[in-house]
Amino acid sequence: MHKEEFIHQLKENEGIIYKVVSVYATNVEDRKDLYQEIVYQLWKSHPSFKHESKFSSWMYRVALNTSISQFKREQKRIEQVPIDTFLLNKMEQIDSLMEEEMTLLYAQIQKLSVIEKGIILLYLEGKSHDEIATITGFTPTNIGTRLSRIKIKLKSQLNTK
């Protein structure tokens, strides 16, 4: 994939990065760090994108896989690049637009396990069981079972609140 096409596609789908970051990182510093790491990993990997899947599906895969390796950097935080203030302002701008209900939803999702977070994110994004299975590597049946469990878990979390 050419650089210009990659940048265009990345900008078109940049909301994916924001959503993955909001689900996987809890504090502001971690979110900034993860946001930049995902952009970097996408940049690094874009020459290997073969158009076998949709660009957005590939982006979900890279973003989710990067989020897993994020906890290895808990002890080794990489220095942020100076455009942070701009990034932070923009992220905060979006945060302020979120309704109370949405904030509650993110808070509940963050209580799920690392695997469940990925699955529920893709489900909420409107992906079918087959698409979730392709991105995550689980079988469609397994996705169904896991989603039922997540549903019960979220319900009990909301009831205990």
């Binding site: 940048i7 900008k11 959503k19 940049w43 690049v81 701009f86 990034l87 979120m98």
Partner: peptide
């Protein structure tokens, strides 16, 4: 919420390249 997120673009051509190069 997705609609609101989509309206606010964070990345620009320059910021993408800057993040990638400095991070590297």
């Amino acid at each position: 919420a997705d609609l609101k997120i989509e309206q606010h673009k964070i990345l620009t051509n320059n910021s993408i390249e800057e993040i990638a190069q400095r991070r590297f």
